[in-house]
Design a protein around this nucleic acid. Structure first.
Length: 1066
RNA sequence: GGGCCUGUAGCUCAGCCGGUUAGAGCACUGUGCUGAUAACGCAGGGGUCCGUGGUUCGAGUCCACGCAGGCCCA
């Protein structure tokens, strides 16, 4: 035992490993060695690679979708660090906004703004501030456990004064450029939350199948007795706000008389669907003929100064639904407001900020508008102004947090004039590398093309206050924008260093206005998306500090989030950067698809199909989870997720990798003549030919190194192109080849301690650990620690501090690759052929006959003959062309060549050839002749290179065929072959017996065997082979009936005999 | 209603510039191999390549129109 210990070079590696436990140990190691910190520090002075962290909110629990995003975020900084870049990984937290407020409202049992005001803004915001960190420890733990390397200690926090001051500075810049303005705009508005919703918030709350009223209303035409314009609406509550009716100028309209005798105008196309049967057609006219007609307003709560209640033309009028005449309420629709402003129509504001009718709307004053729908409908009915009332099912927006139906409502608020920059937004987007590519012109591009001004204001509490002060003098429009705390202090003459830049404290700051009033802050706060979109600037508290850092880190090389951020963070980053700096905020972006449950449905709390990252980590580990995320499909696609899917990845890829590693360590530790120290340094960065020391005459070694270097090349290219799938999947394929081809075929060499083989495998595993480090940081470092750090002083302390491998193109051998592929193909077919004839691989056979597709392939196969013979356990290789009578011939016309040459002639040629004598055809083509095919009208000349002559073995052989290849094996067994088969069978039985007896792999043994005829013959012919294979010192032949020696024994059939073999440790 | 994406075996996914018989893994069944491997090999069942039309000598691949799902926008 001591003897073995002294030879030990690597820590023994158990074949069975608990990945989660191993990962915990690696976390400890990183902690002790401060690997993360050093991965940044040791690259200082190198080129910078800039990553922006999209800030999460810590008042919600992190879920598996966060693991997805963070896995993708993490790999590029790791890769670039290994490439020598300095990558600062500054974290960030999004801390403001409605989600936080709503959580606190819930806690406090408050409902709506009025109650918050009563409760007190100071106390409320204090609660928000604390609530923000509700799940901070969960986030920290998850970040650590999954090895997402990000600096949380110096993370930016959007609610900090420094951050807010930077936002004020940005707003001041925009103010100076006249890009901030207050204007009417119809916004989706949540009456309960008392705030407009941004377009990105709006998108969160659409509900299909919402049922609303659908009513057809009669507007009495002035000076035309008993005549009405028929208009349709699904929002009866907007009718008191009606200012006009719109028609399409070129749409055909009709005037009809219904059974009651009333005359109605409506679109011709819609008469059938809208009108009750029994109407009479009176007139037809274009919409333009209706323009200018005046009608009696339905209600007269306001008496606006402007002209209103007449027919106008609008291009958005359609005949898809309704009556082809559109009710226009400028206060309650974006189109309505636009067309209303164009015609100078009044904005009839009938609804207050709580979504209730104002006092002057006497019948329904104080009623929530949606609740007033039935009463309004009934009122119209009573006055004979309702044509009919139905219900209508459509998609309608609801508040994404509180589920209140939204209303469209004209509100005065602060806007950012992004639409002025629409062309620049689009132009700058072209410079961004989007993954997947289609987002650039597709979803994101489309969004930019349809850019509308950014509604920046929110009538809320816990967010960045808009730093605009307004004079409260009556009728005053005097405004000032404040760009810093110092500026504010100067205006007020106060020391404001301790001022909390939140409501209500900021609201309390006032100063005298030049027009005699007092400057008071406008009530609104900023859309939180402005916070995160401004992080490139604000994370550095720029321009108040960190001028150098800002210079270095102002533009990201890489960001990554899920696709829902197209209108969220991706947009706000791009918008702020374009408006301020006229350049994109990020150069490369991976836009991830969503995570779905195993059955492809959405993961949601209500369905109860949420998968906890912690559970998956505990079962399979973070590496397995990460690897699944990378390899499950293209990053932009939605991906299904479940424990089972991760388990499959672990079993197929991680276990294979681990076992190869474990195998290597076992044999390397047994080998007397080899240690990694005898390997020359493999520091790729320092040598132009990093693999020069690995040269080997062995074709399998050369093949493996060729494949490895090719892999390095492919994976490197993939990382450079942000192609995660290609950076990962080929590694799994390689590991499969490594384990099931290279290692399998070389077992004997490892057993013999072949230094070249060990060196090759060691180098391969170390290189693999580097290639895998960005993706699976735990296992890769575990391997690296044992294979490099533990044995090679002076090497980096962790794979994450190592340099990325360089591909050595000189060892990439395309021919060898092709040869080996062919060998694998032929082996597969050879096994199939054996299978058909029920010949075990253990049974040696005389000959394998192969038909290749070309001379080159034949030559290639000859180069790997030995390997092929070993794998197939046959004595000799022959080629079908040599096999004379055994061969059947077929001439196959190649579709590519002939199709291009003769087009529709190809099927004719194929048909004709099939009917011809194949032997004869083959002879002519082999001789280089061409063959003409003639039809009634055409003559097609087929050259030798247009066909493939295929030769297939006939009878007496067992045959398997695929893709133009054919492999046959001879089925006749000679006594010698049979005996050799028995020898192999015996060896296998003894090996199994050793295993069952729990012997160490290097233990020597003694055997007892009965002196049966077969065994006697066998031992005479193959004694040395059996001794060597099974580490047997001595075989004692005992009488067949005699007792078995002490120790293990096994009884099994061998040939026609049944034998019992006894085993003792020597 | 509009935009973007996806649709290939029971499941997860490949499938290049249109070209030989549409592949791999998982799962299932059978069988074999094995002193690294809960691994691997071989065989079998399993496919209207979402549908319909078109272009072409030839379409999973290109075009058009649909259908279904996802996401986004109205």
């Amino acid at each position: 035992m001591t003897q073995i210990l002294s030879k030990m070079k690597f820590n023994a590696v158990p074949a069975n490993v608990s990945f989660p436990e191993m990962e915990e140990a690696i976390l400890q190691l990183w902690h002790q060695k401060e690997v993360f910190q050093r991965s940044m520090k040791e690259r200082e002075g190198g080129p910078e690679y800039v990553f922006f962290e999209g800030p999460p909110t810590a008042n919600g629990r992190p879920g598996i979708h966060h693991v997805l995003a963070r896995a993708f975020k993490d790999m590029f900084p790791r890769y670039k660090t290994m490439k020598g870049f300095h990558v600062l990984r500054k974290g960030g937290w999004d801390t403001h906004g409605l989600p936080v407020e709503l959580e606190v409202e819930k806690q406090l049992g408050l409902a709506g703004k009025e109650q918050i005001d009563q409760y007190g803004i100071a106390k409320f915001n204090q609660m928000c501030k604390e609530s923000v960190w509700e799940y901070l420890s969960d986030w920290e733990a998850l970040t650590e456990r999954m090895a997402f390397w990000v600096s949380l200690e110096d993370a930016y926090v959007t609610m900090n004064n420094d951050y807010i001051q930077s936002l004020w500075w940005i707003l001041k810049q925009l103010w100076n450029k006249d890009l901030l303005f207050e204007g009417y705009k119809v916004v989706p508005y949540c009456p309960r939350c008392g705030t407009p919703l941004s377009s990105h918030e709006l998108s969160l709350g659409y509900k299909e199948g919402t049922v609303d009223p659908s009513i057809y209303v009669k507007f009495a035409v002035k000076n035309e007795k008993n005549t009405f314009l028929l208009a349709w609406t699904t929002t009866p509550w907007t009718l008191p706000g009606n200012a006009a009716l719109a028609v399409g100028e070129n749409i055909e309209y009709v005037k009809v008389k219904d059974r009651s005798g009333a005359q109605l105008y409506l679109a011709k196309e819609l008469t059938r669907t809208v009108l009750e049967p029994g109407y009479e057609l009176l007139e037809e006219m274009k919409g333009s003929a209706l323009v200018g007609k005046e009608y009696e307003p339905l209600f007269r709560f306001d008496s606006p100064a402007e002209d209103y209640a007449y027919v106008i033309a609008a291009d958005f009028v359609s005949t898809d639904d309704g009556a082809g005449i559109v009710h226009i309420a400028p206060a309650f629709g974006a189109d309505d407001l636009a067309v209303g402003q164009a015609h100078g129509l009044p904005i009839l504001h009938t609804v207050d900020a709580a979504g209730q009718f104002k006092p002057e709307i006497t019948p329904w004053a104080g009623v929530f508008v949606k609740d007033a729908d039935p009463a309004i409908t009934a009122d119209l009915q009573a006055r004979g102004l309702l044509y009919k009332a139905e219900t209508y099912e459509h998609t309608y927006p609801f508040c994404w947090r509180c589920d209140t139906p939204l209303i469209y409502w004209a509100k005065k608020t602060w806007y950012l004039r992004t639409s002025d920059f629409q062309e620049r937004l689009v132009a700058l987007n072209h410079a961004i590398n989007w993954v997947p590519d289609h987002i650039r012109a597709g979803r994101f591009g489309r969004w930019l093309e349809n850019n509308v001004d950014w509604a920046l204001g929110r009538d809320r509490y816990w967010a960045t206050p808009i730093p605009i002060w307004k004079s409260d003098a009556p009728g005053s429009a005097y405004l000032e924008c404040v760009g810093s705390l110092a500026e504010l202090a100067a205006k007020t003459g106060q020391d404001l260093n301790d001022l909390d830049l939140h409501r209500p404290y900021v609201d309390e700051i006032t100063w005298p206005a030049p027009d005699g009033g007092t400057m008071r802050r406008v009530s609104e706060v900023c859309d939180v998306w402005f916070d995160s979109g401004s992080m490139p600037v604000a994370q550095w508290h720029y321009p108040f500090a960190n001028q150098e850092e800002w210079k270095t880190y102002q533009q990201a090389d890489y960001i990554c989030e899920a696709i829902d951020q197209t209108r969220g963070w991706f947009y706000t980053l791009h918008a702020v950067s374009t408006l301020l700096f006229d350049r994109p905020a990020f150069k490369n972006v991976i836009c991830l698809g969503h995570i779905l449950a195993e059955d492809g449905s959405k993961m949601s709390k209500s369905k109860g199909n949420i998968v906890s990252p912690w559970q998956i980590f505990a079962e399979h580990g973070a590496d397995a989870t990460r690897w699944y995320m990378y390899t499950a499909g293209p990053p932009g696609n939605a991906r299904r997720f479940s424990s089972n899917l991760v388990a499959e990845v672990k079993r197929r890829f991680l276990n294979t990798l681990w076992n190869t590693y474990s195998f290597f360590v076992m044999y390397a530790n047994l080998a007397p003549d080899w240690s990694p120290a005898t390997n020359d340094k493999e520091d790729a960065a320092e040598e132009t030919r990093p693999n020069a020391q690995l040269e080997s005459r062995n074709s399998l070694d050369r093949w493996l190194l060729s494949e490895l270097n090719r892999l390095v090349q492919d994976v490197t290219d993939a990382y450079e192109n942000y192609d995660v799938t290609t950076a990962t999947r080929p590694i799994a394929d390689f590991v499969d080849d490594l384990s099931n081809w290279y290692v399998r075929l070389n077992r004997r060499r490892f057993w013999e301690g072949d230094a070249t083989a060990l060196r090759t495998l060691h180098h391969t595993l170390v290189t693999l650990s580097k290639l895998l480090a960005p993706a699976i940081p735990f296992i890769s470092d575990e391997i690296y620690q044992n294979l490099v750090v533990a044995v090679e002083p002076g090497e980096p302390d962790s794979v994450h501090l190592a340099t990325w491998p360089l591909a050595d193109e000189s060892v990439i051998d395309a021919h060898l690759r092709a040869d080996m592929k062919l060998a694998q193909k032929v082996t597969t077919l050879g096994r199939a052929a054996r299978e058909t004839a029920a010949l075990k691989v253990r049974q040696p056979l005389q000959q394998v006959v192969v038909r290749t597709r070309s001379e080159e392939e034949r030559a290639g196969l000859e180069r790997v003959t030995e390997m092929l013979l070993t794998e197939l356990n046959v004595k000799e290789l022959a080629f079908a062309d040599d096999a004379g009578d055994l061969v059947e011939v077929e001439v196959f016309p190649l579709p590519r060549q002939l199709g291009q040459k003769y087009g529709r002639g190809y099927p004719v040629i194929r048909k004709t050839f099939a009917q011809m004598d194949q032997e004869e055809l083959a002879r002519r083509f082999d001789a280089g002749e061409s063959v003409a095919v003639e039809t009634d009208s055409q003559r097609y000349v087929v050259e030798a290179e247009d066909v493939e002559v295929r030769r297939s073995p006939k009878a007496g052989l067992s045959v398997a065929e695929d893709g133009g290849y054919l492999v046959a094996v001879t089925t006749t067994l000679t006594p010698e072959l049979e005996l050799e088969g028995h020898a192999r069978e015996l060896v296998r039985r003894i090996q199994q017996l050793r295993k069952d007896a729990d012997l160490a792999i290097s233990d020597r043994i003694r055997l007892t065997m009965p002196d049966t005829p077969l065994l006697t013959t066998l031992l005479t012919a193959h004694r040395d082979y059996i001794l060597a294979e099974t580490l047997t010192l001595e075989i004692a032949s005992i009488p067949k009936s005699g007792p078995v020696a002490d120790g293990a024994s096994a009884t099994f059939p061998l040939g026609a005999e049944k034998v019992t073999v006894g085993l003792m440790k020597a």
